[in-house]
Write a protein that binds this DNA or RNA. Sequence first.
DNA 1: GGCTATTTTGAACCAGTCTTCAATATCGAA
DNA 2: TTCGATATTGAAGACTGGTTCAAAATAGCC
Lengths: 213, 213
Amino acid sequence: MAQHKRRVERKSDLVDAAWRAMLEHGATSVRLNQVAEQAGLTSGAIIYHYPDLQELLLDAHRAGMERFYEQRLRAVEGIASPARKLVVTIMSGLPTDSDDPDVRLLCELGGAAARNSVYALLLTSLYDRQVSLYQVILEAGAAQGVFALQDDSLAIGRNLVALEDAYGYRIMARHGAIDQEAAAGLILDYARIATGHRLPLLTPSPTTEDKEP
Amino acid sequence: MAQHKRRVERKSDLVDAAWRAMLEHGATSVRLNQVAEQAGLTSGAIIYHYPDLQELLLDAHRAGMERFYEQRLRAVEGIASPARKLVVTIMSGLPTDSDDPDVRLLCELGGAAARNSVYALLLTSLYDRQVSLYQVILEAGAAQGVFALQDDSLAIGRNLVALEDAYGYRIMARHGAIDQEAAAGLILDYARIATGHRLPLLTPSPTTEDKEP
DNA sequence: GGCTATTTTGAACCAGTCTTCAATATCGAA
DNA sequence: TTCGATATTGAAGACTGGTTCAAAATAGCC
């Protein structure tokens, strides 16, 4: 049993190392040696655990995507108001800047997905889950009567995630006029007319602190 | 003079070959040999004209992007109605399916742009030009009183191009529910509330034929 | 047709990477 | 502490792909 646990831990170490290596050298062009170096091992050791490097990279991407998604969930937990929830969710989907590691890898993955059906599937699933995330918020707001949805929540959700994604790429490409704030502003422009709510951007919500004391 | 012309022609042949090779083997992972094969030459001949392969790939991307943009311009020329123009422009920005070559390479380029500042610049410039394209249509429609813009044309234009881009990625990744038509529908959902116009999707416009007889 | 400049080939060379595997080191249990 | 299993190294071999360059082919010109 103990050796099984160690095995799992080691694999997890390698996944982390692979993730860092991809970040440093590129999601697609990363080399086995570079992963090994990040892990503080030699290439043989990597192969011992992952005979196929692609498998390791895939696991690393999976883990990164999962982290990204969980992070978004955490960002809104404890927020009651649908409007605030929507604004925070929008912000949490955007990279802070062109160095944001999670979004960077997601973008590189997006570029590779046209050729790699596994990556494509992974990203498609992430997309759909994010859409659902928005749908829940939109429906809740509609049920409470604070949102007057101009379309079905599925359509609005899809457009919101699409906008996030696209501005993620813009920010990664260092568009001079579009940073996280500007992108959030643009997406909110859409969210406002789609929900019929003013959706104040403003200060980090005071309601978030509620759950702490 | 004649040899100069030949030189230019040959370079253009190589650019075409490089473009095809990228399409077949991937924008980033394409090999010198593969370009040579597409051109019906050996690698030495490619190097003779393009000592740096990156330069050739860059030219190929530039040409592809230019073609894509020109194609969009042509798609609306001769259409008078701003509403129709808007609808046609939206359609022309979306890949027909996951095999659409131009969009495929643009997506791969997007993935690479996070690491390659030249590609980033190229894509940023394309994005901005496409935004301008929309702005012109939006402003014309507003001036004619057929559009009631809910935001400044810059914001709407940016969002429209962002949506196109994002759905391009979804289509490339073979999202089961999002094909060209569905994507157009979603973007139009936004365009409708942003312009206050019904924007009928419908049939290939009859007004297009006007200029033929 | 012969001459020169340009273009292209083909082979040799080099660097980097993956793979394999015997030798070595480390771990955990008894 | 010792033993067997597990993990890791390091070096050798095979392969791929870029680079170089002398030699061959081709084109354009007189």
